[in-house]
């Protein structure tokens, strides 16, 4: 028979392949516990087949980075993202591509079964292509997961240090626990952003809940105070326990020009005075 390439087989038997593939996918779907609708799966299968048929004509499997593959790459990245968001595991996600092999090989066999050598060659080509696409899918899946983890980490950092509005024009940042560089950075960015949003004039950095202050932490605090001043807001550091005051002096950190108070109440009283507000009992 004439040379049957992947492309001609896909064009000719695309419908059968899809029907068979869709059955397999639906069967696997039972274990997916309805995380994805049958209609969505069907739609993804159709689109994949479409895009694959398009690229199969000039398919050089090991070159899926080429621009011809852009569409199918982006499609698979989209599938990975939605799978990751739907809670699929990486192997479940990759199965979407790999399960395409069975019906495809069956069709290849039906078409060129008599020519064993040709069959092996075409099957190998198809395998290479699908493997590359499958790997690309897994890569995209992993990337999505990494982004998710990074975002959650950041969210957690933000949650651990909430910026609260104490009074009109007065923000407070109660810091609790150990302050490391990464956390201080997030805290600082958060606070500065809140100052812009609320138009606060004074920010109180309360370190009552911070067990130790080393040089690095002290420097971070100073930087935050300076950044606040550059933006046009004022900072008060409160909750400086005697022990921490001693450490700061020993470390030789210059806190000159920084207003400090022993506790949050004193800091608030000062902040109210500075903003020209009074409390009536």
């Amino acid at each position: 028979m004439a040379e049957a390439t992947l492309s001609t087989v896909l064009k000719k038997s695309g419908k059968d392949i899809k029907a068979s593939w869709a059955r397999d996918l639906a069967a696997a779907q039972v274990s997916a516990k309805g995380r994805i609708s049958a209609a969505e799966l069907e739609q993804q299968a159709s689109e994949f087949l479409n895009l694959l048929t398009k690229v199969a004509e000039f398919a050089r499997a090991n070159d899926i980075g080429a621009s011809d593959f852009r569409q199918i790459r982006e499609f698979l990245e989209g599938v990975s993202r939605s799978r990751a968001a739907q809670g699929f595991t990486s192997d479940e996600t990759a199965t979407f591509i790999f399960s395409f092999k069975k019906p495809l090989f069956a069709s290849l066999k039906a078409e060129i079964g008599k020519d064993a050598e040709e069959l092996v060659e075409q099957t190998w080509k198809a395998t290479e292509l699908l493997d590359s696409l499958g790997l690309h899918t897994i890569k995209a899946y992993q990337k999505t997961r990494e982004e998710l983890i990074n975002r959650q980490q950041r969210e957690m950092l933000e949650l651990s240090t909430p910026v609260v509005k104490l009074w009109e024009g007065i923000l407070a940042l109660p810091m609790i626990g150990t302050l490391d560089s990464a956390r201080t950075q997030v805290v600082m960015e958060n606070l500065l952003q809140k100052v812009v949003e609320t138009g606060a004039q004074i920010a109180i950095l309360d370190i009552t809940g911070v067990p130790t202050v080393d040089t690095l932490v002290a420097q971070h605090l100073l930087k935050t105070v300076t950044a606040l001043r550059l933006m046009g807001a004022e900072a008060i550091i409160s909750g400086v326990r005697p022990q921490i005051a001693q450490t700061i002096v020993h470390l030789g950190v210059d806190l000159q020009g920084v207003t400090t108070k022993a506790n949050l109440a004193d800091a608030l009283a000062l902040a109210l005075r500075r903003t020209g507000q009074t409390l009536k009992a």
């Binding site: 500065l192 812009v196 930087k223 950044a227 933006m231 046009g232």
Partner: peptide, 15 residues
Amino acid sequence: ILVGMQPAVAITLVE
């Protein structure tokens, strides 16, 4: 009076 410096700019200047 210098007004309206953005947080990212302030952080960078301090650094």
